[in-house]
Structure formats: structure tokens, C-alpha cells
Design a protein around this nucleic acid. Sequence first.
DNA 1: TCTGGGGTCCTAGGACCC
DNA 2: TCTGGGGTCCTAGGACCC
Length: 402
Amino acid sequence: MDVDSSTAPILHMDLDAFFASVELLDRPELVDRPVVVAHDSARSVVTAANYPARKFGVRSAIPLSRALQLCPSAIVLQPHFEKYRHYSREVMSILESVTPLVERMSIDEAFMDVSGAVRQFGSPFEIATQIRAEVSAQTGLTCSIGAAATKFVAKLASGRAKPDGLLVVPAAETLEFLHPLPVGSLWGVGAVTEKSLLGRGIHTIGDLAQTPLQVLRRVVGDAGGRKLHELANGIDPRPVTRETIEKSIGHEVTFEVDISDPAILRRELLRQSVKVGRRLRESGLVGRTIAIKVRFDDFTTIARSRTLDEATQVGRRIADEAVALFEALGRLKPVRLIGVRVENLAEAGSGSALLWDEDEDWRGAERAIDEVEERFGVDSIKPASLLRPAAELGPSKRRPQA
DNA sequence: TCTGGGGTCCTAGGACCC
DNA sequence: TCTGGGGTCCTAGGACCC
């Protein structure tokens, strides 16, 4: 193929239906059948769907119950995140064998800037072709790659190439490629923004490019307006950069049934705080702001946070703050979701901080929680399962594993 | 149909300082 | 006595992404 990709050195690689594809490596007999990856629970949502399932309108993030209505014959497989991390690492190291300039966006996506690799490996088109072949040979997975002059055009291009495709958008063809696309496909335009843009007669990225900046600012705010205006005109100066330090670490849980007992909610906050503390220590980080999030049965959601004088990585300290924030809420509606997050992160040792070693009393308690989790699984100390005797669970939602 | 869990970024208002 | 503007930090809420 004769494509001039010399002006399209930014690549965006996206693994196709990643979680579902990994599961299907072990279940090749199911590849042509609709398959959905989701936790087997009343309130779970689809985390991945293969292409046969998508034909029925099944997409990730829709409720599993809805997915099974759309496609009653769908086979539901449980997720295995450790496996996904393994395959992700393998694919990322293929990318890094071409250039160190790899920016991981998520477990299944990455940007690369191959400007510095063309002398050794050939044009961006040739590099992308090699990567796709290598990924397939080494993992059995397919991926799609977009190549363009900027990150967000490369990302749009990989989306258009799916599944198992490659699309090059030379710099000179950027606007021609961009302008017919619907506004909703633009990065940063979600359901809410899309609706208000459509309401103003702005349907395509081309429409957006012609909309005065002031109008956009009114719709999506100062920063958002400027961003949208630039993107619609093909401008995106963000460079591909390697990993940066995390900004927050948190955990949250949606209960299978709404919870009103504050003792159960406090215990869940404690469990999550311990996990957050452990992750902070593993990353060598401390955090100064402790935040909780509570979602009620009517789906309204509130957040409360407090910034400490001294950063911490100790589960007990996090739990003390989280529980205090929770207690200050007073009487509550039944709770659907609760979560803990630590923000304002810094490297441990970079300033005044309460470190793990200084809080020995708590070690025993953290170890006890670890042991329970290890022996009985995380679910066994999740409030929902404690509240729901097996008899109440009703007929299993699990599909026959054909 | 009834909405996960991991995050990032932006806005707006108030406190406080100069 | 009243009034200012800029800057920074903190908190709450919400849109968005994968």
C-alpha cells in the first residue's frame, strides 16, 4: 500500500474488545458467539463485549440486565484483571521496543511518537503494520492503530479503523477527515455537552469549527470552550509523554442492596482505607487530602474532604478521617455506594508525613483484614454478602458456560 | 433498563493574604 | 470608613474517559 505517513508520526494503539478478547483466548469455541465480560451481580455493568454481542446493541458500561434483554443468548464471562494486566504489559513492551516515547492511557490503549524511530524501523505506516503483526503473533490479540499528526486525531483514527485495522491521516488531510464527524466523537464531548451542542444546531466537528469561541465558552466553560475550538480546527499541541505521578488513589464499592446500618458503612470505609494505605506505601507515596464519596438510593451523590497538615500513607489515619467525615453527615438515606480517596499526593520522604512504621498498633488490624480477605475472598467481608443469605439470592444469573 | 470502579480535569465560591 | 484586585488554597459538585 502506498500511503504517505511521514506527516503522521503520532500513533494511537487500541486493543480490540480487550477483556472479551483475552477471555476468548481460553474459550476459542465461543469466538463467533455474543460474549460479554461482567461481574455476576445484580447491579453490575458490562465491562466488555465482543463484536458479535455489539451487533445486538450491547456496549460496555450498560447494565448487565439490559445487555441480557438486548441479547438473551449472550454468554457472560467473569473478568480476570490479573490476566488483563499480564497481556497489557506484553503489548506495551512491544510498543517500547520501537520507541521509549510510549504514553499508556489505560490498560488497553497507548500513544506513541515514532518520529525518532523512522530511520531504524521505517515510516509510521510501516511501524504500525509491524506492531499489529507482532501483537497478533505474540499474544493472539488484535489491535487497531491510528496514525496522525496529533494525539486526538490519531485516537479518532484508531476508532475508525476498528476492529483489527490501521488508518493513516496525513497532516494535510486532517480537517477533511475531522469535519464530517459527529461532535459526539470529539474527545471531551460526552452526553451532556453533545446534547447542548446539538440543541444549538452544532452537529459535526465542522459546525463546531465555525462556531465563535464565545458561544462555545458559554456552553462548556472557559477552558472547555477553548479546547473544543482548537480540537475542531485540528490543533492539539499536547506531546506524547511518559508516565507521570498519580494524582489520587481511591476505592469505592456499590453494594448489592442499599445499606442503612452505619456500622456496616464505617467498616467498609475502614476496609477501603486500609487498601488505599497499602497502595500508597507500595507506590512510595503519601497524601494530604482524604475524601469520601457517598451515593444514596436515589443516586444523588455527595463528596466530603479534608486536607491534613501532615500527609499520610497509614490506613488508620485515612480511616479515622474518612469515618469522621462520614459521621459529620448525620442521618442518611439508604446508601448505594461508598468510597474513599486520597488526593494531593507526593513522594514519601519529600516533606512532613506520617509514615507506616510510626503507627505500629494498627498493623495487627490491617493484617487481620488481609487474612480474612485472603482466606475467604474479598466478598466475604463485603457488607452486601453478609446481609444476603444464600436463600435470598434467587435463581443464579450465571449463564450456562456452553 | 436502572445505572461499576478506576481515575482526570474544570468551575465556582469562600477564606485569607498582600 | 469604605473599597480594590490579584493570588493561593480549600471544598463541593459535575462532566468526562476507559
